[in-house]
Write a protein that binds this DNA or RNA. Structure first.
Lengths: 381, 381
DNA sequence: AATGGCGCTGAAAACCTTTACATCCATGCT
DNA sequence: AGCATGGATGTAAAGGTTTTCAGCGCCATT
């Protein structure tokens, strides 16, 4: 059937041990013999049987990759990165899709675990405790999620958010809404945190040449909601506790303004599904807040906003500016093209594989980049 | 380390042979023993080592899946279908992406071949001779490509095209352009063939309540090109032979019209890359043909057309109707939402796996479905 | 000249499972 | 009662590789 190591050994007139050494530990065999063996091997088209090798070495040369939803255009980029790097390292990759079902994740990982040397887990939705247990069981690296006890690769959300807000502020926007993603999403929590950080940080104040600190939101628009409590590091006043229903809530971020040239009013919308439909559903509520700019949890949601705005005859960016996150290919295809904070995808995948191949308990943070296209423009344009 | 079959055997007080039989050939062992063994096995959390099993049985329980470009939103749907069915059958799937490089396909297949029981090859771009050789080497099923000698699953392009043209004709369109995909694409060839078939078939004539046969195209628009040769079954007059440069060419399909109520003038555009950019690039040329409707090779190209039309202030569908192929999710997100011929994706993937698991040399043809959305409207609207 | 050491190679064990074959026992038949 | 039959279980080989250990020849050292 297939050519085995014995065939090569016989043809080369050596033992199987010499063949395996000639191929995998070149320095342990005399150059003349080595070359002869190698010539014969490639001549016969010999490739080691990976199952047999795995049996003895305990390693498979395979990687597992788990994503929440391949249909979400954010993930294919990561998958391609993982694949490219894995192939370079002569590893094949198993792909599994959890269909956005957090309960399926752990099972899938454990199932794959026996056939791979490690798995990269993309944006896992499962609770942290469970995740940590899993990380202790088998080698794995997280992408776009960070927990203690597992290596991970993420991106500079804070910096990305800073670029985004800077951009909007520079265009004159002072009333900015944020459409939140799922509560269970680590990325969403990070974005919210970044957003709050940015609107308080002095770095931002400098970069935008203006202080970015709020005041109680427009009382007329939301009477009775959004009472400011000017204390604590995390001014999460009036944040809706029930999820899904998502009452619109105005949140004023307070802090020591360096100067009062500009004030940003931050409006957090309740969470939506991180998909197109979520954006469509949120669009009208956004309009009701009279925000002049909106930052969406991700591009898909932003696209939903764009769609609904177009349907209602709201001009983007003249009437309202829209900014997304991720930089999925579609963003450049729609009209107007979407301004977005680009998150590394291919590089993230590659980095994850590197971390798997040469294990080290680190969090690798990749850069983000604001991409200005047509969906953002001057306030009150 | 991991629990082996021997551990189970010892714990259950039987031999390893009995354990393996109890688990995989239940009827070959006494019920009492069988249950005892099974209890112990699940107690210890025993799972057979797949490498060892593969070594002896020659089968791996794995499938390979190769797609041209995961970033093309058409493919994730297929991938998900393959995965779902494979998991049901307790198979894991290796995914590989060729990055639209036809030369990489064969190598990838051969590489995967040794680790899988079979591979499903999605829209392969490689030449048929090479493909046939490959099919002889290892079990594989083709998706969206059909050759003699390999099982495949495709879709009813002819029927889909008939629905599409019927729809446009019913809306009053008589001058329809087709933007072709890559010459190497089987799907493109099929679509062209279907298009020609439809505009000639009496079935279509009936379904559209009008005959659909052309005449030489407008001389003014394309002086000197498109000379009609009214012979042969395949009237491919003036088809550009150089690929890529793609001179616009008018092709008139001739044939015996049943009645002269309606005539369709078919305009074939040179091939473009099957991506967004291809559509953008083709848009202006389409306009120059003064076609009232355009059928794009696929949705991505259609989206490119839409994009460029929007930029030029051409209203869709008022000024021109646009119809795509595939039904990718984005199609529903853009404005106006894209009318398209939906091709089965998940079902195609599932069918492919079935064909791999229970080999049979057939071509399975899945149904297509026209999805009318907002990008098509009455001619001369 | 003998010994130690070193570089190179070969023999064989080990990895874990499946399966062909052997063994054993009980049952039923003659 | 003895033997054939057949069902249940055990034994051992096989599958292809890596790795440990031993062996062999040769050079350098004493």
């Amino acid at each position: 059937m297939a050519v085995t190591i014995k065939d090569v050994a016989d043809a080369a007139g050596v033992s199987v041990a010499t063949v395996t050494r000639a191929l995998s530990q070149p320095d342990k065999v005399r150059p003349a013999t080595r070359e002869r063996v190698r010539a014969v091997a490639s001549d016969l088209g010999y490739h080691p049987n990976r199952a047999a090798r795995g049996l003895i070495t305990g390693r498979t040369g395979n990687l597992g990759l788990i994503v929440p939803d391949l249909a979400n255009p954010f993930f294919p980029g990561i998958v391609k990165g993982v694949q490219a790097r894995a192939h370079e390292a002569d590893h094949a990759v198993f792909l599994a899709d959890t269909d956005e079902n957090p309960a399926a994740e752990a099972g899938l990982v454990r199932r794959l675990a026996k056939q791979v040397d490690g798995v990269v887990l993309c944006s896992p939705r499962m609770p942290e405790t469970e995740l940590r247990a899993l990380a202790a069981e088998i080698p794995m690296v997280l992408v776009y999620r960070r927990i203690p006890g597992a290596p991970s690769v993420t991106a500079g959300f804070l910096d990305g958010m800073r670029q985004a807000v800077s951009h909007l502020v520079a265009l004159g926007h002072r009333r900015i809404a944020y459409v939140a993603g799922p509560r269970t999403s680590w990325a969403n929590r990070e974005r919210v945190r970044s957003l709050r950080g940015v609107t308080r940080s002095s770095a931002f104040s400098r970069s935008s040449a203006s202080a970015g600190i709020g005041r109680p939101m427009n009382e007329g628009a939301f009477p009775g909601i959004g009472r400011p409590t000017n204390e604590g590091t995390s001014p999460r006043i009036g944040r809706p506790t029930s999820e899904g229903v998502s009452v619109d809530v105005g949140v004023s971020t307070t802090g020591g303004a360096r100067d009062e040239v500009a004030e940003i009013e931050l409006i957090e919308m309740g969470s939506v599904m991180p998909q197109f439909e979520g954006g469509v559903a949120a669009a009208d509520r956004i309009l009701a807040t009279r925000a002049t700019a909106v930052i969406a949890y991700n591009d898909l949601v932003a696209l939903g906003l764009l769609h609904r705005f177009a349907a209602r005859g709201i001009a983007v960016p003249e009437d309202i500016s829209v900014l997304g996150f991720d930089d999925i290919p579609l963003g450049a295809m729609v009209h107007p093209a979407l301004t977005t904070v680009a998150l590394p995808k291919g590089p993230a995948g590659r980095a994850a594989v590197d971390l798997l191949l040469t294990p080290q308990m680190v969090n690798q943070q990749l850069p983000t980049q604001l991409i200005v296209r047509a969906s953002t423009g001057p306030a009150g344009g």
